[in-house]
């Protein structure tokens, strides 16, 4: 099918502000949005810049705003985005500083990730075998471990748009994953971090993150559990 692709472009060495550029592209309805971008880069304009790697939604490289919603370009098909003759738009993730075209600076995103101590803390002597964890206990955190840290959620959250320092759903979900891991011993410390002015309480249960998550994680549900935990531990 023939579609018009509009891309919000920005070349740090030439442009003062972002500009829209349109391309007319021949594509198949079963193509991924990423295929369209690659096609443009390879056959129309080699300077078009975006991140990509796995091309099937597991590495988290290509989160961007597609037709106004944050998605992974490699995980949506054209048939779900445009009709014959229609227009498809690409923009970088909102509330992030743009490096070039669709590439954004994720250093702030990962600073938030590091802030929640995203690692297992268990200082008691390690047993000979694995630390046991029941299948039920594992299930509590299982969905949260699916997160690929693409940033679609954090950058879809109005709280982040308003306050770029808000920890954001991705980091908080990581905190959840460790606080609720039965093997972890340092949930208090981590709770103190998320229970800070830039933390958990800026989540107003807006659900944008849930809608944006390419891994279909029910983020708000887990953050609510984290809030309850923070409250009950505090009192």
């Amino acid at each position: 099918m023939n579609i018009t692709v509009k891309i919000k472009r920005f070349d740090p060495e030439k442009d003062d502000a972002a500009r829209w550029e349109s391309y007319s592209v021949e594509a198949d309805k079963m193509d991924r949005a990423l295929d369209v971008l690659m096609d443009i880069k390879w056959h129309h304009d080699g300077s078009l810049t975006f991140r990509k790697s796995c091309a099937h939604g597991v590495c988290g490289s290509d989160a961007m705003k597609i037709n106004g919603e944050n998605k992974l370009a490699c995980s949506v098909l054209l048939q779900d985005l445009v009709k014959e003759g229609g227009t498809l738009t690409f923009e970088p993730l909102p509330a992030a500083s743009v490096i070039k075209d669709l590439v954004v600076d994720q250093s702030g995103f990962f600073e938030k990730y590091r802030a929640v101590m995203p690692w297992l803390i268990n200082d008691s002597p390690a047993p000979e075998k694995e630390r046991y964890q029941s299948a039920e206990d594992h299930e509590i955190i299982e969905e949260a471990t699916k997160c690929i840290l693409c940033g679609a959620c954090t950058h879809s959250c109005p709280s982040t748009w308003a306050d770029p320092d808000y920890l954001g759903p991705a980091a908080l979900l990581k905190a959840y994953r460790y606080v609720f891991d039965t093997r972890d011993e340092e949930s208090e410390e981590r709770l103190k971090i998320v229970d800070s002015p830039n933390g958990l309480w800026k989540c107003y249960t807006i659900f944008n993150c849930v809608q944006a998550c390419p891994k279909e994680i029910d983020i708000t549900r887990w953050l609510s559990a984290l809030k309850r935990k923070a409250v009950t531990t505090r009192f």
């Binding site: 694995e130 046991y132 029941s134 299948a135 299982e142 093997r183």
Partner: peptide, 10 residues
Amino acid sequence: GVPFSRTNEG
């Protein structure tokens, strides 16, 4: 900390 799937015994 790798969150492996578990058997019934954990």
